[in-house]
Protein backbone atom coordinates (compact mmCIF):
# COMPACT_ATOMS: atom_id res chain seq x y z
CA UNK A 1 0.00 0.00 0.00
CA UNK A 2 2.69 2.52 1.08
CA UNK A 3 6.07 1.95 -0.45
CA UNK A 4 9.07 4.23 -0.04
CA UNK A 5 12.51 3.52 -1.49
CA UNK A 6 15.81 5.24 -0.77
CA UNK A 7 14.36 8.53 0.35
CA UNK A 8 16.92 11.31 0.70
CA UNK A 9 16.30 14.76 2.00
CA UNK A 10 18.64 17.49 3.13
CA UNK A 11 18.19 21.06 4.36
CA UNK A 12 21.16 22.88 2.84
CA UNK A 13 20.67 26.12 4.80
CA UNK A 14 20.73 24.28 8.13
CA UNK A 15 23.41 21.89 6.89
CA UNK A 16 21.32 18.87 7.92
CA UNK A 17 20.76 15.65 6.03
CA UNK A 18 17.37 14.63 7.43
CA UNK A 19 16.82 11.37 5.52
CA UNK A 20 19.58 9.05 4.33
CA UNK A 21 18.17 6.34 2.08
CA UNK A 22 14.99 5.62 4.06
CA UNK A 23 13.07 2.56 2.84
CA UNK A 24 9.80 1.22 4.20
CA UNK A 25 6.73 -0.67 3.10
CA UNK A 26 3.35 -0.78 4.82
CA UNK A 27 0.70 -3.33 3.88
CA UNK A 28 -3.08 -2.71 3.84
CA UNK A 29 -4.56 -3.05 7.34
CA UNK A 30 -1.16 -2.64 8.96
CA UNK A 31 -0.21 -0.08 11.61
CA UNK A 32 3.41 0.85 11.13
CA UNK A 33 5.06 2.71 14.02
CA UNK A 34 7.76 5.22 13.18
CA UNK A 35 9.73 5.85 16.35
CA UNK A 36 12.71 8.07 16.94
CA UNK A 37 14.12 10.77 19.18
CA UNK A 38 13.60 14.47 18.44
CA UNK A 39 15.29 15.50 15.19
CA UNK A 40 15.64 11.91 13.97
CA UNK A 41 13.71 12.66 10.74
CA UNK A 42 10.21 11.36 11.58
CA UNK A 43 8.30 14.52 10.65
CA UNK A 44 10.36 14.95 7.46
CA UNK A 45 9.59 11.31 6.54
CA UNK A 46 5.84 11.78 7.18
CA UNK A 47 5.80 15.07 5.22
CA UNK A 48 7.47 13.43 2.22
CA UNK A 49 5.34 10.28 2.40
CA UNK A 50 2.15 12.39 2.52
CA UNK A 51 3.22 14.34 -0.58
CA UNK A 52 3.69 17.63 1.25
CA UNK A 53 7.43 17.90 0.80
CA UNK A 54 9.60 16.86 -2.15
CA UNK A 55 12.41 14.37 -1.51
CA UNK A 56 15.83 14.99 -3.05
CA UNK A 57 15.90 11.40 -4.24
CA UNK A 58 13.98 8.15 -3.91
CA UNK A 59 10.45 7.11 -4.85
CA UNK A 60 7.08 6.68 -3.19
CA UNK A 61 3.96 4.88 -4.30
CA UNK A 62 0.59 4.91 -2.56
CA UNK A 63 -1.76 2.08 -3.53
CA UNK A 64 0.50 1.52 -6.56
CA UNK A 65 0.22 5.14 -7.69
CA UNK A 66 3.53 6.96 -7.85
CA UNK A 67 3.56 10.23 -5.92
CA UNK A 68 7.28 11.00 -6.24
CA UNK A 69 9.93 9.53 -8.45
CA UNK A 70 13.21 11.13 -7.57
CA UNK A 71 12.55 14.78 -6.92
CA UNK A 72 9.91 14.88 -9.64
CA UNK A 73 6.22 14.88 -8.75
CA UNK A 74 4.26 12.07 -10.37
CA UNK A 75 0.51 11.58 -10.29
CA UNK A 76 0.11 13.70 -7.20
CA UNK A 77 -3.66 14.46 -7.17
CA UNK A 78 -4.60 10.79 -7.67
CA UNK A 79 -2.16 9.61 -5.01
CA UNK A 80 -3.05 12.39 -2.59
CA UNK A 81 -6.73 11.51 -2.83
CA UNK A 82 -5.80 8.18 -1.20
CA UNK A 83 -3.87 9.79 1.66
CA UNK A 84 -5.26 10.96 4.99
CA UNK A 85 -3.12 13.19 7.16
CA UNK A 86 -3.55 13.76 10.88
CA UNK A 87 -0.94 16.39 11.75
CA UNK A 88 0.65 16.75 15.16
CA UNK A 89 -0.96 20.20 15.61
CA UNK A 90 -4.71 20.70 15.75
CA UNK A 91 -4.88 21.72 12.11
CA UNK A 92 -8.44 23.02 12.23
CA UNK A 93 -9.88 26.53 12.06
CA UNK A 94 -10.64 27.53 15.62
CA UNK A 95 -13.49 29.89 14.73
CA UNK A 96 -15.23 27.44 12.40
CA UNK A 97 -17.54 24.78 13.77
CA UNK A 98 -16.58 21.12 13.55
CA UNK A 99 -19.02 20.69 10.67
CA UNK A 100 -17.70 23.76 8.80
CA UNK A 101 -14.13 22.48 9.15
CA UNK A 102 -15.16 19.06 7.84
CA UNK A 103 -17.07 20.66 4.98
CA UNK A 104 -14.00 22.69 3.96
CA UNK A 105 -11.54 19.78 4.04
CA UNK A 106 -14.11 17.44 2.45
CA UNK A 107 -14.55 19.82 -0.49
CA UNK A 108 -10.78 19.92 -0.98
CA UNK A 109 -11.02 16.17 -1.61
CA UNK A 110 -13.81 16.65 -4.15
CA UNK A 111 -16.70 15.70 -1.89
CA UNK A 112 -19.90 17.71 -2.22
CA UNK A 113 -23.66 17.71 -1.71
CA UNK A 114 -25.37 14.88 0.16
CA UNK A 115 -22.32 12.63 0.07
CA UNK A 116 -20.29 15.27 1.88
CA UNK A 117 -22.98 15.87 4.50
CA UNK A 118 -23.38 12.11 5.10
CA UNK A 119 -19.63 11.64 5.49
CA UNK A 120 -19.42 14.57 7.92
CA UNK A 121 -22.17 13.07 10.04
CA UNK A 122 -20.58 9.64 9.89
CA UNK A 123 -17.11 10.88 10.84
CA UNK A 124 -18.29 13.10 13.68
CA UNK A 125 -20.29 10.17 15.05
CA UNK A 126 -17.24 7.97 14.69
CA UNK A 127 -15.16 10.31 16.85
CA UNK A 128 -18.02 10.96 19.29
CA UNK A 129 -18.60 14.58 18.34
CA UNK A 130 -22.00 14.36 16.66
CA UNK A 131 -23.56 16.45 19.43
CA UNK A 132 -20.95 19.18 19.03
CA UNK A 133 -21.07 19.35 15.25
CA UNK A 134 -22.19 22.97 15.29
CA UNK A 135 -19.82 24.13 18.03
CA UNK A 136 -16.67 26.06 17.22
CA UNK A 137 -13.40 24.17 17.59
CA UNK A 138 -12.34 26.92 19.97
CA UNK A 139 -14.84 25.67 22.53
CA UNK A 140 -13.59 22.04 22.44
CA UNK A 141 -11.49 20.33 25.11
CA UNK A 142 -8.03 18.99 24.17
CA UNK A 143 -9.37 15.47 23.63
CA UNK A 144 -12.27 16.67 21.49
CA UNK A 145 -9.89 18.73 19.35
CA UNK A 146 -7.66 15.67 18.82
CA UNK A 147 -10.68 13.58 17.79
CA UNK A 148 -11.93 16.30 15.44
CA UNK A 149 -8.39 16.51 14.00
CA UNK A 150 -8.60 12.78 13.18
CA UNK A 151 -12.12 13.14 11.76
CA UNK A 152 -10.90 15.79 9.28
CA UNK A 153 -8.19 13.39 8.09
CA UNK A 154 -10.46 10.41 7.41
CA UNK A 155 -13.47 12.15 5.85
CA UNK A 156 -12.57 11.08 2.31
CA UNK A 157 -11.98 7.44 3.34
CA UNK A 158 -8.24 7.32 2.59
CA UNK A 159 -6.35 4.10 1.88
CA UNK A 160 -3.30 5.31 3.76
CA UNK A 161 -3.33 7.43 6.91
CA UNK A 162 -0.36 9.26 8.39
CA UNK A 163 -0.82 10.01 12.08
CA UNK A 164 1.78 12.29 13.63
CA UNK A 165 1.61 11.94 17.42
CA UNK A 166 -2.20 11.98 17.54
CA UNK A 167 -2.47 11.36 21.29
CA UNK A 168 -0.34 14.18 22.66
CA UNK A 169 -1.83 15.92 25.70
CA UNK A 170 -5.14 14.11 26.02
CA UNK A 171 -6.85 12.14 28.77
CA UNK A 172 -7.02 8.34 29.02
CA UNK A 173 -10.61 8.17 27.75
CA UNK A 174 -9.90 10.10 24.56
CA UNK A 175 -6.70 8.12 24.02
CA UNK A 176 -8.63 4.89 24.35
CA UNK A 177 -11.22 6.08 21.89
CA UNK A 178 -8.50 6.94 19.39
CA UNK A 179 -7.00 3.46 19.78
CA UNK A 180 -10.41 1.95 19.07
CA UNK A 181 -10.71 4.12 15.97
CA UNK A 182 -7.32 2.95 14.72
CA UNK A 183 -8.35 -0.66 15.25
CA UNK A 184 -11.44 0.05 13.20
CA UNK A 185 -9.35 1.52 10.33
CA UNK A 186 -7.13 -1.51 10.52
CA UNK A 187 -10.18 -3.72 10.11
CA UNK A 188 -11.11 -1.81 6.97
CA UNK A 189 -7.69 -2.52 5.40
CA UNK A 190 -6.32 0.99 5.78
CA UNK A 191 -2.55 1.24 5.96
CA UNK A 192 -1.32 3.52 8.74
CA UNK A 193 1.98 5.11 9.65
CA UNK A 194 1.97 6.21 13.26
CA UNK A 195 4.57 8.32 15.02
CA UNK A 196 4.66 8.61 18.78
CA UNK A 197 6.96 9.15 21.71
CA UNK A 198 4.80 6.87 23.89
CA UNK A 199 6.45 3.44 23.61
CA UNK A 200 3.63 1.60 25.37
CA UNK A 201 1.24 2.96 22.73
CA UNK A 202 3.47 1.72 19.94
CA UNK A 203 3.84 -1.69 21.61
CA UNK A 204 0.07 -1.99 21.99
CA UNK A 205 -1.02 -0.67 18.58
CA UNK A 206 1.68 -1.28 15.99
CA UNK A 207 2.04 -4.43 13.96
CA UNK A 208 5.54 -3.38 13.00
CA UNK A 209 7.82 -0.55 14.01
CA UNK A 210 10.89 1.16 12.63
CA UNK A 211 13.29 3.04 14.88
CA UNK A 212 14.73 5.96 12.97
CA UNK A 213 17.76 7.97 14.01
CA UNK A 214 19.95 10.42 12.08
CA UNK A 215 17.78 9.93 8.98
CA UNK A 216 18.25 6.15 8.85
CA UNK A 217 16.17 3.18 10.01
CA UNK A 218 18.30 1.52 12.64
CA UNK A 219 15.87 -1.25 13.57
CA UNK A 220 12.70 -2.62 11.99
CA UNK A 221 10.31 -5.45 12.88
CA UNK A 222 7.43 -6.42 15.13
CA UNK A 223 7.71 -4.94 18.63
CA UNK A 224 7.92 -8.39 20.24
CA UNK A 225 10.64 -9.58 17.86
CA UNK A 226 12.74 -6.50 18.37
CA UNK A 227 12.48 -6.71 22.17
CA UNK A 228 13.24 -10.39 22.22
CA UNK A 229 16.33 -9.92 20.08
CA UNK A 230 17.71 -7.36 22.53
CA UNK A 231 20.03 -8.60 25.27
CA UNK A 232 19.13 -5.96 27.85
CA UNK A 233 15.75 -4.44 26.97
CA UNK A 234 12.63 -5.74 28.63
CA UNK A 235 10.21 -3.68 26.64
CA UNK A 236 10.03 -1.31 23.70
CA UNK A 237 10.99 1.67 25.88
CA UNK A 238 14.17 -0.04 26.99
CA UNK A 239 14.97 -1.13 23.45
CA UNK A 240 14.47 2.41 22.19
CA UNK A 241 16.96 3.81 24.68
CA UNK A 242 19.38 1.00 23.92
CA UNK A 243 19.23 1.84 20.21
CA UNK A 244 19.22 5.62 20.36
CA UNK A 245 21.17 6.23 23.57
CA UNK A 246 20.41 8.27 26.67
CA UNK A 247 21.98 11.50 25.45
CA UNK A 248 19.50 14.36 25.34
CA UNK A 249 18.29 15.37 21.87
CA UNK A 250 17.14 18.96 21.49
Amino acid sequence: MIKAENLEKSYPKAGIKALKGLCLEVAPGEIFGLLGPNGAGKTTAISILAGIMKPDAGSITIDDISIFNGSAKSNQPAAKAKIGLVPQDIALYATLTAKENMRFFGRLYGLSGNILEERIEECLKFVGLQDRADSMIDSFSGGMKRRANIAAGILHRPKAIFLDEPTVGIDAQSRNMIFEMLESFKASNTAMIYTTHYMEEAQRLCDRIAVIDDGRIIAQGTPDDLVSKSQNAENLGGLFLELTGKKLRD
Partner: peptide
Amino acid sequence: KQGMLLRIYAAPI
Protein backbone atom coordinates in the same frame (compact mmCIF):
# COMPACT_ATOMS: atom_id res chain seq x y z
CA LYS B 1 1.59 28.17 12.00
CA GLN B 2 -1.36 26.08 13.08
CA GLY B 3 -0.89 23.36 10.48
CA MET B 4 -3.95 23.96 8.30
CA LEU B 5 -1.69 24.78 5.37
CA LEU B 6 0.00 21.41 5.87
CA ARG B 7 -3.38 19.73 5.56
CA ILE B 8 -4.15 21.82 2.46
CA TYR B 9 -0.80 20.82 0.93
CA ALA B 10 -1.70 17.18 1.53
CA ALA B 11 -5.02 17.56 -0.32
CA PRO B 12 -5.29 16.83 -4.07
CA ILE B 13 -5.51 20.49 -5.08
